[in-house]
């Protein structure tokens, strides 16, 4: 039987919703236990959130001052030790999970399965390659721990609220390196929903034209309670910061509603949104590739159409 250790992602004392998506993937293995590991300097509030997620058997906490910031070189030796006795170690395929999980896999001397989209059997998974243009079925060695990152857009967040899993403190005897140090995190401050987990996302592209013009996207997103994203072209042009990039090399998201405004639909952008529930495209070029995958398309000038949309919303 399988026992799965899910690595919790958190920031500022809050659990990242990607953790509950990794728990969903863990549940698909039908394991005997799913334990969530919280490595932090002050894990209590994070652990309490994790304990409420359906399907979680136990929450394990490791409290160390060195765990204040998510440095892979510091976290990986602790995770590798905590992994003893588990058949699988899962982390969300976010920049956090992508950074730390391969380091854990190498310490354990095992291969990693990146971006798990579906679980076919305890050691058989599907994952995308070539920017999602091919899907492969991979089999991991059943005699070794499976380390995997979970493609969050492929998995719903496990429900939360009904569970109250026990929380246990772990002491891990691992020498931690001091060769890597956290300096700072520069975050855009925003009261808008989180792009990775929002149910509605409005994204702007090169067609928006400038940093100033992007206000029209923010305003419309606020009107419908959506998170704001952008295409790589808009980020490269400096309209918005990098953390708003949606696509193969940015965030891969699966909101219920995705509205692409002034985005032509380069393959690398489409890779990031193809699991969205409903895709709306607004573009002045009726031949733009985005219309090939959009559920609803509207051709026209975004600066004219957005005010009209706002008006139609009332």
């Amino acid at each position: 039987m399988s026992k799965i250790l899910v690595i919790a992602e958190h920031l500022g004392g809050k659990l990242n919703p990607s953790t509950a998506r990794a728990v969903s993937a863990a549940a698909a293995v039908k394991p005997e236990a799913i334990d969530v590991l919280v490595l932090a300097d002050a894990p209590d509030a994070i652990a309490a959130e994790a304990a409420k997620i359906d399907g979680v058997s136990r929450v394990l906490t490791v409290t160390r001052a060195e765990n204040a910031h998510p440095l892979a070189a510091v976290l990986a030796p602790q995770i590798a030790k905590a992994a003893t006795g588990y058949s699988h170690v899962f982390a969300p395929s976010t920049t956090f999970g992508k950074d730390v999980a391969p380091r854990v896999a190498a310490l354990l001397g095992v291969a990693q399965v990146s971006d798990v989209m579906s679980v076919e059997a305890a050691h058989t998974f599907k994952r995308p390659i070539y920017a999602g243009n091919a899907i492969i079925t991979v089999e991991a060695d059943a005699n070794h721990t499976v380390v995997a990152t979970i493609r969050t857009a492929s998995w719903p967040a496990a429900a939360s609220g009904a569970n109250s899993a026990p929380i246990e403190a772990l002491t891990i005897d691992a020498a931690l390196p001091t060769h890597t140090r956290f300096i700072e995190l520069k975050q855009g401050s925003s009261d808008r929903p989180d792009l990775q987990s929002a149910s509605k996302v409005v994204s702007g592209g090169r067609g928006v034209g400038s940093k100033e013009n992007f206000d029209i996207i923010y305003k419309f997103a606020d009107k419908i309670g959506a998170a704001v994203g952008a295409s790589r072209a808009a980020v490269d042009a400096g309209y918005v910061p990098n953390e708003m990039q949606v696509g193969q090399t940015g965030k891969i998201i699966a909101p219920e509603l995705y509205m692409a405004i002034g985005i032509s639909g380069a393959i690398q952008h489409l890779t990031g949104i193809k699991d969205a529930g409903t895709i709306v495209a607004i573009n002045k070029d009726g031949e733009a590739p985005i219309f090939e995958i959009a559920d609803f398309g509207l051709v026209g000038d975004l600066f004219k159409l957005i005010p009209e949309l706002e008006q139609a919303l009332g």
Binding site: F96, E184, Q187, Q196, E243
Partner: peptide, 10 residues
């Protein structure tokens, strides 16, 4: 370039 923004490490 991390999901939350820009992280600086040494």
């Amino acid at each position: 370039e991390v999901d939350a923004g820009l992280e600086v490490i040494e």
